[in-house]
Design a protein around this nucleic acid. Structure first.
Lengths: 226, 226
DNA sequence: AAAAGAACTGAACTATGGTTCACTCGCTGA
DNA sequence: TCAGCGAGTGAACCATAGTTCAGTTCTTTT
């Protein structure tokens, strides 16, 4: 008598939800938030506009979930790096350069998640993940302070915030669709990206390192050639 | 025969324009960009909605001008600090802490200009001024590198970007109307703001300084008490 | 004072895009 | 097979806010 969802239907519903999320993410990573209109997302997912609302209560919820999924992966990556704590300097260097290189691999998406104008609810979610990222960086900073690799006199929370802001800002230029400087310079290759990431990481590390000389112990490949 | 604007009228028109700009700035500094609706601005300026379009071709132009006026003043302040170059470390410290303290004096406005969601045209203007700020910081960094106060092996452009991003990010938390952490902590007084500015500046300086010890030469008041 | 030109007015227009809902379709269970 | 229920549909609805413009008021000039 009672209608009971069969496994098959359950699977189809789950698949629909996933298709909506994937479509939204794809659209955002192609053209930013403005492409993530419900009607676009729906047709990209192969369903009708109204059906989206069977899976997500509002556009904001959908967008926030897109952001969350992608951002959480980055937080996880940083957490893994922070856990695998060897020398703090190297750990911080790897964390920053990994983040930069990963962002550069999907620039449009990274730009949307990091810097693109968006509405309040997305902005709030963005802040949450920025904070989570900052927390991982702070862990590395604290470890380094404990081991004596990093200056103990700096407030680790502020240091972490400055570092996060620093590499985020450094990304905005290269990521921004508005900015043509980076594209013009032809520094598109993975080689150039790697070099850029290394330089950014170096400055970030310097902000907390006890002695700049520490740098000498880094793989030369990761360093800016003088 | 031909109609000729008398001085009196000319003055009134100029005054109207100024009143519109002032009203817009006041509204933005009270409630952010969303308050800067043409109808609001018009009534705040004591004129009709349509009249605004006698002075500004579009809302975007008006908003960009509001942003420009305020941002340019900050750039000018930084330029003056950068010009008055004594020891690079102190110069950079003063530049960063001055920026932070000035922003904290009008938080809502600073938040709108620095971080609040806004439309493309405002965002573009924002990038222009961020770049101008970065340029001034870069001058200080280069001077410091030349004098040997700052590490010569860092790319000054990247270092400046990281520094600017660093203190901007550090501001977002305290400035954000979304964030209640800062308000809760009761750290509202000028004393607390000064301390915060000093800490942020210290981390930024550390990013480029040759030796952290340099800090010892700073006025103790500007430093975080251990 | 009166014609002419400019400024002012604000209600109406418009564009955008999220959200709804009356309806149809397709599963489920008997 | 068929009654009943949830899923799917997409055109219509609505809310917001920027922009326009025909009519009105104020200034200038003769």
């Amino acid at each position: 008598m009672a209608y009971r969802k069969t496994e098959r239907v359950e699977a189809r519903l789950a698949d629909n939800r996933k298709r909506i999320l994937d479509a939204a993410r794809r659209l955002v990573s192609e053209g930013g938030w403005s492409e993530a209109q419900i009607s676009h997302v729906a047709s990209a997912a192969g369903i009708a506009t109204g059906s989206v609302y069977r899976y997500f209560p509002s556009k904001a919820d959908l967008c926030v979930e897109v952001l969350s999924v992608v951002s959480q992966r980055e937080v996880d990556v940083l957490e893994a790096i922070a856990n695998n704590a060897e020398a703090a300097y190297q750990t911080l260097h790897v964390a920053v350069s990994a983040f930069v290189e990963r962002a550069m691999r999907n620039r449009r998406l990274a730009y949307a998640l990091i810097a693109e104008p968006c509405d309040r609810e997305i902005e709030e979610a963005r802040l949450v993940y920025r904070h989570a990222i900052s927390k991982q960086i702070m862990r590395i900073v604290k470890d380094g302070q404990a081991s004596g690799d990093f200056r103990a006199d700096l407030d680790p929370s502020i240091a972490a915030t400055v570092i996060v802001g620093g590499f985020m800002e450094s990304l905005i230029g290269p990521l921004s669709p508005l900015n043509t400087d980076f594209d013009r310079s032809g520094s598109e290759g993975p080689e150039a990206v790697h070099a850029l990431a290394g330089q950014i990481a170096e400055v970030c590390c310097a902000a907390v390192a006890v002695y700049p000389d520490k740098i000498a112990s880094l793989d030369t490949h990761q360093r800016r050639h003088a």
